[in-house]
Amino acid sequence: MTYEIVGITVLWTFLYGYLIVASIDFGAGFFSYYSKRTKKNHVIHHIIQRYLSPVWEVTNVFLVFFFIGIVGFFPETAYYYGTALLIPGSVAIILLAIRGSYYAFATYGSKESNFFSFLYGATGLLIPASLTTVLTISEGGYISQESGNVELLYGELFSSPYSWGVVILAIVSVLFISASFLTYYASRAKDEKALELLRRYALTWAAPSIIMGMIVFYLLGEQNPTHFASMLDLWWMFAISFVAFAVATFFIWKRRNYGTAFILVCVQFFAAFFAYGASHLPYLLYPYLTIYDGFTNETMAIALIAAFIAGLLLLLPSLYLLMRLFLFDADYVEGRK
């Protein structure tokens, strides 16, 4: 395995980590607001708060890790993506800033405010939409490079069915991942009412998420045939993804094995996300940038990988402690602590 592959695998894994933890967070914000509007807030509010409060800051770090890591491993990406993404990137930053700080204001600061929870719910859907711009433009066709000036073609981006497809896919996936996790969390908390409501949310968003996945798969064929062809070579990974989805939904439907169901949802997205990523290689930005021409020097690559391993040795036990205290501690989850 070359350093380039190690580098991109590390980064992709972090992005996957962000996809899962951030989805739970974003979806939770939306459900929290939605249930408030439908006067069911009291049912799930505590469950969501109890889970989110200790982890909201950790979620953010996954994203920081990814964008710091990608500039470290592939400095050339800073030039292309940095120049092209000024506006969508800034919009995402502003949304993240509003969301993060207003979460803290609402939770630790003043009393419950409708306006704060609206901001929290709305940004939960807008952030994934704005972040997907990066994935969309990586397919090529949305960037022009003339006389050394990189520019994002907004006309192309906003009129493209593919880019809208990805946005919708992101939103429905967020809601599905989040609802399936919260269903599991509610079942651990033995909170029957919350479980019922969240289970219904999970089932509502199951079908849209898989259907959108298929639509985007098809649209990608139109947008970037080369990438589509290599995706077909990895058809078995998409098959694993589909089976995992089907079994997970079946469990939730049958009201059993909520924990396994959530793990299967993770497997579903893991398989699809890595199959998508692997077939995208060697391009980081089609057709301008591959992982080979954008790679950092060898010394830095070794140093980064060493730092990464050392960091993991520190982080994994800490994360385990965090989960033991707040996720797998029955007393805490059930609200007795």
Binding site: E57, V58, N60, V61, V64, F65, I68, G69, V71, G72, F73, P75, T296, M300, A303, L304, A307, F308, G311, L314, L315, S318, L319, L321, L322
Partner: peptide
């Protein structure tokens, strides 16, 4: 790249 990466680690550790 290295110190920035390590800063993110330190931040992670603190956040947890």
């Amino acid at each position: 790249g290295l110190p920035m990466f390590m800063e993110a680690f330190a931040f992670f550790f603190e956040a947890i």
